[in-house]
Design a binder for these strands. Structure first.
Length: 465
RNA sequence: GUCCCUAUCGUCUAGCCUGGCCCAGGACACCGCCCUUUCACGGCGGCGACGGGGGUUCGAAUCCCCCUGGGGACGCCA
C-alpha cells in the first residue's frame, strides 16, 4: 500500500459526462497501480443545482465503467460545520474578511472592467473596513501580499506561475452562509489526505488561489496534474451538439464499458503504438508522463472501432446477457427463439454496437418474416419454385443441421439445379431472414434449426410471385 | 480585453527532455485490390502532418525567440 491518495470530485448537477469519466479513470488507474487510495467525493455545495438524481446517475456510470472507489462517496453537504469553522478561523487570523458589496455593485464593476479591457477583479472595497453593518455579507479571502507570485509544479504541464496582481480576494462564503468551491475543495482535499489532485485543466486558473488557501489554513499543498479538455469535432468544448456527452448514453447506444474505457484513456494518453488495453493493462501501464498536454478531439469513429473490436473478441455468454435488453427494447420476444449465445456468435463479426447486433438478430426471433420490398422482388420470384422445392427436399433429408449435412444438401441442390451456390443462397437468405444481408447461410440455418427453417422456406414459397 | 495553457497526417498519437537512426512511425476514418454465398471480418496497398518566421548548430520535428492558430479562466458554478 503506497501513500498515494487521489480523488474524483464531481458536482451532481447533471449526468457523468465523457470528460469527467476520463478524469475519474486516470485517478482510478493511478491509485490501483500504486496501490493507493481512490476517494469519491460529491461536491454538492451548490444546494440549488445539486440533485439526488444526478448523484445516482454519476454513481451508476462509475459502476458501469468499473471504477469502484476505495473510500466514499463523501458529501460536502454533510460537512458544512467544518467549513464554517475554517472560515471563522481565517477571519480570526485576519486572513479573511466580511464584504458587504452587493451583487449589483460587483456586476457593474465587472462589466466596466471588461469594457475598459481590464481583467475584472474585486477592488478590495471592504478589505479594510472595521465596522460591521447589519447587512448581508460574504466572506472573502484576503490575497496574501507577502510575495507577488505563486508557482506550482504541474505533473503534466510543468511549472506554472501566476502573478498575484492577476488574482483578487475571492469569496469563500456566500451571503446565505454556504461555502464556495475554492474553499471546500482545499479543506476536503487536505482533510482527506489527498496528495495528488488530478482534474481537468479548466481548473488551472483556480490552482494558485487554492495553493494560497492551503497555506493560509496551514495545510501542506498537494501535487497537481491537470489533464487537457476534450473538444468536439469543431474544436469547441465538447457539448450536446456534438452528440451524446453522457457516459450512460453510450451504454444505451450499445457500447461496451471496456470499449469506452479503452477509448477514453487513449484520448490524451498513449503507450507507444499500442491501441488495445484492458483495465489490467492500463493499471500496469498508465502513467501521467505520457498524458498529452493539448486538448483532444472526441472521435466517435474510433470508439466504434474499439467497440466492434470488443464485440468481436468478447465472451458470447456475456454478450448474450448484454444483448437481451436491447432485443426486448425492440419488442422482440427472446423466449421464443433460438439460443441467444448461438445467435450472438453469428453476429459478433458484423456488429459495431449492441443496438446494431439487436437489429441483426431480430429476424431469428420473428414469428413471421417481413420481406424487404426490394429483396422480395428480386429473389422471391415465380421461377424460384423449383429451387425451393428441391431445397426443402434436400434439407429434409438432413438428420441435424450441422455444417457437414448442410454442405451435402447444398451440393445436391447445386447438382440438381445447375445453379452456383450464390444463386441458391441469396433467395434462401431472403426466405429465412427477410433481407439480403445476414450471417453465413449455414450459420443461419444451424441456429434456426430444421423445423423453423423449413417453416420459413415454405412461407416464402407461398408468396412467390 | 487580460491572464494561463497549448501546437506532428482530417482525428487520436509515436518521436522532442538526452539534435543526426525521421525525405517522420502506428491507429481510426477514407480510397483501391484480394478473400467471399450476402453483409461483414480479415489480408495487402494507397492518400495524408512536423502552423509561419527568425535564430543556435556541420546538422533541428527535436534547443531558443517572435508571430499566428486553438483551448481555458476571469461567477455569491464547480
Amino acid at each position: 500500500m503506497s501513500d498515494l491518495r487521489v480523488r474524483f470530485a464531481p458536482s451532481p448537477t447533471g449526468y457523468l459526462h465523457i470528460g469527467g469519466a476520463r478524469t475519474a479513470l486516470f485517478n482510478y488507474l493511478l491509485a490501483k497501480q500504486q496501490q493507493g487510495t481512490y476517494v469519491l467525493r460529491i461536491e454538492d455545495t451548490d444546494v440549488e443545482r445539486s440533485t439526488q438524481e444526478s448523484v445516482d446517475a454519476i454513481l451508476q456510470a462509475m459502476e458501469w465503467l468499473g471504477l469502484a472507489c476505495d473510500e466514499g462517496p463523501f458529501y460536502q453537504s454533510d460537512r458544512f460545520d467544518l467549513y464554517k469553522e475554517k472560515v471563522q478561523q481565517l477571519i480570526d487570523e485576519g486572513k479573511a474578511y466580511r464584504c458587504y458589496c452587493t451583487q449589483e455593485e460587483l456586476d457593474a464593476k465587472r462589466e466596466a472592467a471588461m469594457k475598459e479591457g481590464r481583467k475584472p477583479k474585486y477592488d478590495g472595497t471592504c478589505r479594510n473596513r472595521d465596522d460591521q453593518p447589519d447587512a448581508p455579507y460574504v466572506v472573502r479571502f484576503k490575497l496574501p501580499t507577502d510575495r507577488d507570485e505563486t508557482t506550482f509544479n504541474d505533473r503534466i504541464k510543468g511549472p506554472i506561475t501566476f502573478r498575484h496582481n492577476e488574482l483578487d480576494d475571492l469569496i469563500i462564503q456566500r451571503t446565505d452562509g454556504t461555502p464556495t468551491y475554492n474553499l471546500v475543495v482545499v479543506i476536503d482535499d487536505a482533510e482527506m489526505g489527498i496528495n495528488l489532485v488530478i482534474r481537468g485543466d479548466d481548473h488551472v486558473n483556480n490552482t494558485p488561489r487554492q495553493v494560497l488557501l492551503y497555506e493560509a489554513l496551514g495545510y501542506s499543498v498537494p501535487e497537481f496534474a491537470h489533464v487537457p479538455m476534450i473538444l468536439g469535432s469543431d474544436k469547441k468544448r465538447l457539448s450536446k451538439r456534438h452528440g451524446a456527452t453522457s457516459v450512460m448514453a453510450y451504454q444505451e447506444m450499445g457500447y461496451l464499458p471496456e470499449a469506452m474505457v479503452n477509448y477514453l484513456v487513449r484520448l490524451g494518453w498513449s503507450h507507444g503504438d499500442e491501441e488495445i488495453f484492458s483495465m489490467d493493462d492500463l493499471i500496469e501501464k498508465f502513467s501521467l508522463e505520457n498524458v498529452g498536454r493539448a486538448a483532444g478531439v472526441f472521435n466517435p469513429e474510433k470508439l466504434d472501432w474499439l467497440n466492434s473490436h470488443y464485440i468481436k473478441t468478447g465472451d458470447p455468454e456475456r454478450l448474450a446477457k448484454l444483448l437481451t435488453p436491447f432485443l426486448e427494447n425492440k419488442g422482440v420476444d427472446v423466449n421464443n427463439g433460438p439460443d441467444m449465445v448461438a445467435v450472438v456468435k453469428t453476429l459478433q463479426e458484423r456488429a459495431t454496437t449492441l443496438v446494431e447486433m439487436a437489429e441483426g438478430a431480430a429476424f431469428y426471433f420473428a414469428t413471421t418474416i417481413e420481406y424487404e420490398e426490394k429483396a422480395k422482388n428480386k429473389f422471391l420470384t415465380a421461377d424460384k419454385q423449383e429451387l425451393f422445392t428441391l431445397l426443402v427436399a434436400e434439407l429434409n433429408k438432413c438428420e441435424a443441421f450441422d455444417e457437414a449435412n448442410l454442405e451435402t444438401a447444398f451440393a445436391a441442390v447445386m447438382e440438381g439445379t445447375g445453379l452456383k451456390f450464390g444463386k441458391i443462397a441469396q433467395p434462401l437468405r431472403v426466405a429465412l431472414t427477410g433481407g439480403t444481408a445476414s450471417p453465413s447461410i449455414y450459420h443461419v440455418l444451424e441456429v434456426l434449426g430444421k423445423e423453423e427453417a423449413l417453416k420459413r422456406i415454405n412461407a416464402a414459397v407461398a408468396v412467390l410471385g
